[in-house]
C-alpha cells in the first residue's frame, strides 16, 4: 500500500515489512507494512481492537511477528533498544506512591541500569532541561499519581525523550485529555518531531485532532493497515477495501468522518460512529 511520497529524502528510522501475527489461534495482524522517517509525525489510526496496541508491541519487541520483518534503521531490531522511546497510555499509579514527575523523568535516563543513581549536577540539569522542554516545571515536584491527564502525558513524554531516542511511540496520548490539553500535547509532539528530527508515531482512535500536524497516516482496521498521506489513505475506496465493506468518508469543514456505507445496516452503524466521534474543533 506504500506509495511514493514527499519525504523520501528524510532518513528512514523504522520499516515494517509484511508483518503478520497470530495469537492464541487468532490472526491479530495481517500483512502490515509501513515506514517511519526522521522528523515526521505519523498517526496510527483505528478503532479500539483494530490492532494498534499490537503494532506497538511488535515495534517494541514485546511480540515476535509470525511472519514479516521489523527493521530499525535498516537492521533487525535489537532486543535492548534505548533508541525507541515509549509513552504508555496510562501508568495507573496510586497518589500515595512517593515518586515525583522529576523522578519519573530521571528514570528515563538510565532506569534500566543497576545501582542507586548518584546525585550529580549534570543529571539534574538534564532533567530540568527536559522538564522545561515539555513545559512541566510547574509540576516537577508533584507526585505522579496526583498529576492531571495532560500533566502526566507531558511527564511521560519527557521520560521517553530524555534518552534521546530516534523513534517516539505514543499509545493513545489524547485518550484521557480535555480538548485544551489535547491541542497542547499535539503541538508539543509536532515541535519535537521537527526540532529534534525524531520519527513520532501516535496511536489514536480519532484522527481529527491530529489532522493539522500529521505528515502521514497508517490506518488500521481488523488487523490490516494502509499507509500514506491523509489524502492517499482516507478515501472511500482505500478504507472500504480495508474494512471489507463499504464506508463513506465525509469532509465537514476541516474535519473528516468515517462512517459505514449505505448498503448494510447503516442506521445503526452511523449512529455508533457518531458517538465514537464527538464534535470537535468548535473552539
Amino acid at each position: 500500500m506504500t506509495s511514493p511520497d514527499r519525504f523520501d529524502a528524510r532518513p528512514e528510522v523504522l520499516r515494517l515489512e509484511g508483518v503478520s501475527l497470530w495469537l492464541s489461534g487468532r490472526e491479530i495482524l495481517h500483512d502490515v507494512g509501513f515506514s517511519l522517517r526522521a522528523g515526521e509525525l505519523t498517526g496510527l489510526i483505528g478503532s479500539n481492537g483494530a490492532g494498534k496496541t499490537t503494532i506497538f508491541r511488535v515495534i517494541l519487541g514485546l511480540e515476535t511477528p509470525s511472519s514479516g520483518r521489523v527493521l530499525f534503521a535498516g537492521h533487525p531490531r535489537p532486543h535492548r533498544n534505548r533508541l525507541i522511546g515509549y509513552v504508555p497510555q496510562s501508568i495507573g499509579l496510586d497518589p500515595d506512591v512517593p515518586l515525583r514527575a522529576r523522578d519519573l523523568v530521571a528514570l528515563g535516563i538510565d532506569g534500566d541500569r543497576f545501582g542507586i543513581p548518584l546525585p550529580s549536577r549534570g543529571r539534574r540539569r538534564l532533567v530540568d532541561d527536559m522538564l522545561e522542554a515539555v513545559d512541566a516545571q510547574a509540576f516537577a515536584d508533584t507526585r505522579v499519581g496526583k498529576l492531571s491527564g495532560g500533566e502526566l502525558q507531558r511527564s511521560l513524554i519527557a521520560h521517553a525523550l530524555i534518552s534521546q531516542p530516534r523513534l517516539l511511540l505514543l499509545d493513545e496520548p489524547l485518550a484521557s485529555l480535555d480538548i485544551r490539553s489535547e491541542q497542547e500535547v499535539v503541538g508539543l509532539l509536532a515541535r519535537i518531531a521537527r526540532e529534534q528530527q525524531i520519527a513520532v508515531l501516535i496511536s489514536a482512535h480519532e484522527m481529527n485532532p491530529l489532522l493539522p500536524v500529521m505528515d502521514r497516516v497508517v490506518y488500521v482496521a481488523s488487523g490490516r493497515a494502509a499507509s500514506g498521506s491523509t489524502e492517499e489513505v482516507v478515501r472511500e475506496d482505500v478504507l472500504s477495501a480495508l474494512y471489507g465493506h463499504h464506508v463513506d468518508v465525509l469532509h465537514l469543514q476541516d474535519r473528516i468522518l468515517v462512517v459505514a456505507g449505505k448498503d448494510e445496516g447503516h442506521h445503526l452503524e452511523l449512529e455508533r460512529e457518531q458517538h465514537a466521534l464527538p464534535p470537535r474543533g468548535l473552539g
Binding site: 517494541l60 514485546l62 535492548r80 525507541i84 504508555p88 506512591v97 534500566d112 505522579v144
Partner: peptide, 9 residues
Amino acid sequence: VMPEAAEAR
C-alpha cells in the same frame, strides 16, 4: 512503576 515501558527498554 511502568512495567511495559521498562520491558521496551
